[in-house]
Design a protein around this nucleic acid. Sequence first.
DNA 1: TATAAGCTTAGAGTTAACTCTAAGGTCAAT
DNA 2: ATTGACCTTAGAGTTAACTCTAAGCTTATA
Lengths: 144, 144
Amino acid sequence: MLKISELGARTGLSPHTIRFYEKHGLIEASTRTEAGYRYYNDSDVRRAEFVKTARNIGFSLDDIGQLLSIRVDKESHSCQEVTDITRHKLNEVNERIAELESMRTTLSRLLASCCGGPEQATHCSIMDALDNGEVETRQRAGTA
Amino acid sequence: MLKISELGARTGLSPHTIRFYEKHGLIEASTRTEAGYRYYNDSDVRRAEFVKTARNIGFSLDDIGQLLSIRVDKESHSCQEVTDITRHKLNEVNERIAELESMRTTLSRLLASCCGGPEQATHCSIMDALDNGEVETRQRAGTA
DNA sequence: TATAAGCTTAGAGTTAACTCTAAGGTCAAT
DNA sequence: ATTGACCTTAGAGTTAACTCTAAGCTTATA
Ligand SMILES: [Zn+2]
Ligand SMILES: [Zn+2]
Ligand SMILES: [Zn+2]
Ligand SMILES: [Zn+2]
């Protein structure tokens, strides 16, 4: 039986994050001491590790919730349900990659066009391009 | 001179977003009527279009603020400053793409391993992989 | 003149996934 | 018995970029 900080050490999650995941139904301590301390048994630990693995892959907490509900009752769920979740995630990832690649292309082209030197930016081709909207503008914006 | 909704139509930004950008110092209406209505002149419109173009490329509002401060006084700034901002963004984009490609690889491999059929998930190789942490887990997680 | 469309502000809400704080209780070791 | 490390809870704060609401004014049209 592990305490919360020990589970944290095992999984690489902070106690704060573990409690946060608990609040969202992802992780549970099947035992509590009288004082309320959480204790995690082997099954709890495996579930927590499952969560961490899924998180590392990039699944959202919501996705993970669905995967967990399959995990606790595999007989009632199909491989298709699992691949649906996985494929949906893959589609999101592919879309985002396409957006980012479009940004990359634009940024590279801009960089290639500018001297990058210490001269005044009055003649800067990047500023010019931004001023003139000379940029293929297919995708949604968004942080890196 | 354009009203806020007309500027919105021109740029594809909502009036809400235009006011939000104003609050963050990106866009300004150089004239206001007595009643307080914003009116945008040609220069304001060009600045707003610059912002929209930069946003489309993927620059953050913070990046755009820096680009704008160069834009209003190009003599005092260099091409190097412009490329620094651009290259920094490109680096972020490249890092994010690398993370997402790692996710894509993992997700594709998982999908390839599972039958995806209507059978019970008791034998599902995706669930097994998640249970056993059999996944290369190099990158930070994050939504799509 | 009445109605509707559009404008104003301040400020709250949204989303995801944490991250931290405060105030106090518990436990192992000295 | 006293540290000090660790635990508890409820709830607030963070980040980015919006997005919306409320309550009330203005303007154009019919
Ligand atoms: Zn130059
Ligand atoms: Zn330049
Ligand atoms: Zn199967
Ligand atoms: Zn399967």
